[in-house]
Write a protein that binds this DNA or RNA. Sequence first.
DNA 1: CGCCGCCGCGCG
DNA 2: AAAGCGCGCGGCGGCG
Length: 568
Amino acid sequence: MTAVPAWHIVARRSDESILVVEAAANGVETRRTELAVDGFASFVIDHPEIDRWVWNDTARWYPVLLDAGIRVPRCHDLRLAHAILSASDLVRDHRPLRAAAAWDAPGDVATPDQALFAFDDGKPRLPERPDEILAEFRRQQHALATAHDPDRLRLLVAAESAGALIAAELRVAGVPWDAVTHDRILTAALGSRPTAGALPSRVEDAANRVRAALGDVRVSLDSQPKLLRALHRAGLPARSTSRWELEEYDHPVIAPLLEYKRMSRLLSANGWAWLDEWARGGRFRPVYVPGGVVTGRWASSGGGALQLPRQLRPAVRADPGWTLVVADVAQLEPRVLAAISRDIRLADAARGTDLYDGIVAEGVVATRQEAKIAVLGAMYGATTGDSGRLVPALRRAYPRAMGYVDDAARVGERGGRVSTWLGRTSPDPSAGWRAVQAHASDVDAAAGSGDAARRSARDRGRFTRNFVVQGTAAEWALAWLADLRTRLWSMEPTPGPAASGSGRVFERRPHLAFFLHDEIIVHTPIADAETVATAVAESAERARALLFGGFPIDFPLDVRISDDAAKD
DNA sequence: CGCCGCCGCGCG
DNA sequence: AAAGCGCGCGGCGGCG
């Protein structure tokens, strides 16, 4: 008979020591060990049987372990779990959790050298003492055990915590980045790297052509107000300088201006300065922020990890002897919508094919492009234009799915909350929002206040409409990642060349290298690539089963094995 | 000088 | 073919 798995809770006892407490699932302590403050990694190495860690913040404790060459199987991240549980409508009594408000402090983004030692930066700090850690763990375990649907919420907390581990690991592994390819792309697009303070030749040339077309050799192209006034002087009645509006006009300045804006964007966002700062040592190491978006999506901080332009993807390049497995899910969000609404007809249209093609095949709309616009419009709440025009056809064909998002929108417009499939609940409306609504319903409300109230109500309705879909898609993606992480770890280390930039833990094993909402990149020894590709697909199926059980929706992947991550 | 909001645009 | 959701970042310019 095996014992019930214990949790191991790590906390800061004093400036000199940390404490590891072994506890049962109900939080009752069974053993405690005191360690020197720098003894955590060696303790973990000496206790490989420990497989479930509890800590206040993964970004605080895990980088130290990774740096020491240690990977942890699973954890319970108290900060992330607190954020979910204290807001979730599946939790019956939020009061104990909400009273522990110090847990709402934002997470630290710590590097290994500062994680355990930097204490005096003035930022709000998470609780870290043993009594505080244990008390919160017990509050959370109680909230989970007594929740309306404990299994779903436990799955969500486990997936969120696994995501925190993965985010730390992604930073250690990094995206294998070929600076030579990046430089070649920049040079082809912008001209060769200029000396400091100068513009690359092609950017300078485009700027000169814009100024010539405007008849103004001095105008600043980087200042929106100045550029807009210059356009007006040249006879263009533009209301903004955004690309989609400029494209409407027929004028000699438009082509070079759009060219300038495109090049200027590449230069300032991902030019040579970015290359110098973010791609040192053959790796791009983005800072991911798990749970950084209210819907549960990850955010990023620094480096623009979630905005890498497609143009630069050829610079993502496997190490010698290694390759990349690049996988993304086709139409993740509408598939999730079919599943959470139990809309069999939409699931049928999605099965075994491109979901948009499936909708066309059912005769709902005429073309794939129309299907795409209609589906996006339905999930985002479009009301005007072609998208708004196409949504009613979708509503007739898929009343369950559309009813689900329409209901979510109605709840949001009234000021209510909605929840994802696993129980992440949307935030309450702000005090300002409620005041606008209350003011509009006053008998002597000023003319126009009703319009403002209706507008902000509809804004919030679009948010809650999208929340249920985007948030559940994020849950599916976390489950996919977490399961894949385990499968990859079960593979044998490679006897071939090491991926020396990927850190001690990963340099001889297939490892996740990039994640972007519905896409992953695995960096793998060439010999393991097919096995990895199979694992990626099996994990997608496992995620489907974990979230949606027997409901017949599938999540088809586009999986490519390639030395670089160029798209199409 | 730093801070902050706005604009525009990259990603899903 | 639309301008509907969620983000982060760079550059500018107003403000204290």
